[in-house]
């Protein structure tokens, strides 16, 4: 029983980061109708940005998060303005190809800049733990889960309570009607893509202290983001949180009780089933 709880707890903590990855992708899909194949690479950009600041500024990687988010946001806006806006009206395969291309270019830029050795950073909490009864918690995971909760709550407030948030949701639900309310939907799209990039970068920053960074690991995370988003419902931001936690727990339990070499199959199978049976996602209503 203790073991089971331990495994579920780990799943939830990992799932939190998955949720952040998924929320960004979901926002982008909701507002821009773009399936972003570069999303995992954005996360890796976040990892390397964290690494860069960590090594230059010699401060705790969690402290440079605001910088990382800023860089991610800026990059997102630049990419949207220069590459996605021009093809906003093109058929969907154009945006798929475009994001594939963007991912390739970005990951290679990382390769030129940082080399291709996996980068691992050592912080004092990389391996430290704390305990609650018989359950062990990784300090790094705990901090990142805490930050995840903070960020998601902040995002929920932003989306739910502010003009900007309403503008984003309005643009996602009905872009024309949003324009008629004086909302500059073009700016909203840039902003949303910036936010999506920033959130992915944030997830990278949160993962770095426990994992490694390598320019080529983007696609793994892109796939995770797809799974989370489809589980929660494409374009459904709240659903992405549920999707992230669900994926985290499924993977944890699957790896522990079935086989770790089939770990990714569980997520993929759930993904396919939801796609086929409940295309609006587990937590969504169908949108018409």
């Amino acid at each position: 029983m203790v073991e089971f709880i331990q495994i579920v707890v780990n799943g939830i903590f990992t799932g939190g980061v998955y949720a952040i990855i998924g929320i960004g992708l979901s926002l982008i899909f909701g507002v821009m109708r773009i399936v972003n194949f570069a999303h995992g690479v954005f996360l890796v950009v976040g990892m390397f940005t964290t690494l860069f600041f960590f090594e230059r500024l010699h401060v705790d990687p969690f402290l440079v998060i605001p910088l990382v988010v800023l860089v991610g946001g800026l990059l997102g806006v630049i990419v949207e303005r220069s590459l996605l806006e021009p093809i906003a009206r093109a058929p969907e395969h154009a945006s798929i190809l475009m994001t594939v291309g963007i991912g390739l270019v970005l990951s290679n830029v990382l390769l030129f800049t940082f080399g291709d050795a996996p980068q691992i950073i050592n912080t004092r909490y990389s391996t430290s733990t704390w305990h609650l009864g018989p359950i062990t918690f990784s300090t790094a995971l705990t901090i990142s889960f805490f930050l995840t909760v903070v960020v998601i709550s902040g995002l929920a407030l932003l989306l739910g309570r502010t003009d900007l948030g309403r503008a984003i949701r309005a643009a996602a639900q009905n872009a024309d009607a949003a324009e008629l309310q004086g909302i500059n939907t073009r700016r909203v799209r840039s902003l949303v893509f910036g936010m999506g990039f920033a959130l992915a970068a944030l997830a990278g920053a949160l993962l770095l202290p426990q994992l490694f960074a390598h320019p080529s690991i983007g696609p793994t995370y892109t796939l995770k983001a797809f799974i989370v988003t489809v589980l929660g419902g494409m374009g459904n931001v709240a659903g992405a949180i549920g999707g992230g936690l669900l994926l985290g727990i499924t993977e944890s339990l699957g790896a522990a009780y079935v086989s770790s070499s089939y770990r990714d199959v569980f997520g993929l199978a759930a993904f396919l089933l939801v796609l086929l049976l409940r295309p609006a996602g587990l937590f969504g209503r169908s949108r018409t």
């Binding site: 309403r166 503008a167 949701r169 309005a170 639900q173 009607a177 949003a178 008629l180 004086g182």
Partner: peptide, 28 residues
């Protein structure tokens, strides 16, 4: 301002949120 045909409301937002969205402009 235009009130479009078929209402075009933001269906998944509350009544008040819809109204607040109507005053998105700095002016209003």
């Amino acid at each position: 301002a235009m009130v479009p045909e078929g209402r075009q409301l933001f269906n998944q937002m509350t009544v008040e949120e819809n109204l607040l969205t109507g005053s998105s402009l700095a002016r209003t």
